[in-house]
């Protein structure tokens, strides 16, 4: 009937009810489930298969898990969670299970086979599920993100991870941490340090949420830039850049690094680092750097301790976990009374 066809089309345009049992799922449904799915109980049948998949997961029967996940997801392809679960079961649960197996047979050919053939297959299955889900839900950042997660957590492929995190971050509903994950992956890509620094610095300046990862990444990237500058430039070039009227803290830090590493001129380096730490644009981790630099120098130890104490109170995130033992050493060296010591 024309009216019905119209409505059907509109349903499809709205992305609603657009479903026909694809061959893949039809073959894997029992007859009863197929009739049920056709008879208007699609969502219920999907739930039942979801439970079956869960049972198979408990039994660690990964072939069954895969079969049931395919059925569930193709019965209700617009429900992102079904795709996400399929990805999770493949790339985390099955993968993790086989990693255990591979360790058990690490000396055998079997172990090699599992590690080099089976495990990558499950990662790929996970990625494939997410991509099929994206055909139905092209705007779902979560499915994009889960692909990036696999590249990041399972494959250690920062290039790919960065690419997918970036795609995910561009979706309207993506929370800010997805973009930060992109930035972090970028810092791990060899040869893309400049791009990484641009993104990370922009995040540092403009996003309200300064996470530890972001701060560490920024510090690492800036160290890297300073080291690169110290290697590529002459003393004069570095000095002129650092002492110029409108010199940025990064130029100063590069010069200070040069003084410290190449010239081994400790006090000159400290002088410049003091300027860096006092620079309005400079991140607080320069103050930490300066403080620990001075702490190793007997004459400056007291001053260094004061700086650390201020930092611990005003910006504890600038300090790292391993700093605590160094601070404790410093405190005992200086004979600081127990009750006056810095507490994390």
């Amino acid at each position: 009937m024309p009216l019905e066809r119209d409505m059907e089309m509109e349903f499809k345009e709205q992305g609603f009810r657009d479903w026909s049992p694809g061959l893949s799922s039809r073959d894997q449904l029992t007859q009863a489930a197929f009739v049920g799915a056709l008879g208007g109980f699609r969502s219920l049948v999907a739930s039942v298969y979801h439970l079956k998949a869960h049972n198979s997961f408990v039994k660690k029967n990964w072939g069954e898990v895969e079969r049931y996940r395919t059925v569930t997801a193709s019965l209700q392809p617009k429900f992102w969670s079904y795709w996400d679960l399929a990805v999770w079961d493949m790339a985390w649960n099955a993968y993790g299970y086989y990693r255990g197996e591979a360790e058990e047979y690490s000396d055998d050919f079997k172990g090699w086979h599992i590690e080099n053939i089976i495990m990558p297959t499950y990662l790929q299955k996970g990625i494939d599920y997410a991509k099929r889900g994206l055909e139905w839900l092209p705007d779902d950042y979560r499915l994009l993100k889960v692909i990036a997660d696999i590249y990041d957590q399972k494959m250690g492929n920062a290039e790919k991870a960065a690419e997918w995190y970036l795609k995910a971050s561009r979706k309207p509903e993506a929370p800010p941490h997805v973009y930060r994950a992109y930035a972090h992956q970028l810092t791990l890509c060899a040869g893309r340090e400049k791009e990484a620094y641009r993104v990370t610095e922009d995040l540092y300046r403009n996003s309200g949420d300064l996470t530890l990862t972001l701060l560490r990444d920024l510090e690492r990237l800036e160290d890297d830039i300073a080291r690169r500058a110290a290697r590529d430039m002459t003393y004069e070039q570095l000095r002129d850049a650092a002492l110029a009227e409108d010199a940025g803290y990064l130029e100063m830090a590069s010069f200070a690094g040069y003084l410290l590493e190449v010239r081994k001129d400790f006090s000159a380096a400290v002088d410049i680092y003091e300027k860096v730490a006092g620079h309005s644009q400079a991140p607080t981790f320069y103050r930490r750097k300066l403080a620990f630099l001075m702490a190793d120098h007997p004459k400056k130890a007291v001053e260094a301790y004061q700086m650390l104490k201020t930092l611990a109170l005003s910006d504890p995130a600038a300090l790292r976990r391993e700093d605590m033992s160094r601070i404790a050493q410093l405190e005992s060296r200086l004979g600081i009374a127990k009750q006056k010591r810095i507490r994390p």
Binding site: E4, E10, R17, G40
Partner: peptide, 29 residues
């Protein structure tokens, strides 16, 4: 058309399937 009249398209009524998956249905529909 004949098929459409004799056999109503019952699939159109399965709104709940979409709703439970978090989809939205317009009032006009």
């Amino acid at each position: 058309g004949l098929i459409g009249v004799v056999f109503p398209n019952f699939q159109l009524f399965n709104v709940a399937d979409g709703l439970t998956a978090g989809e939205v249905i317009s009032t006009s529909l």
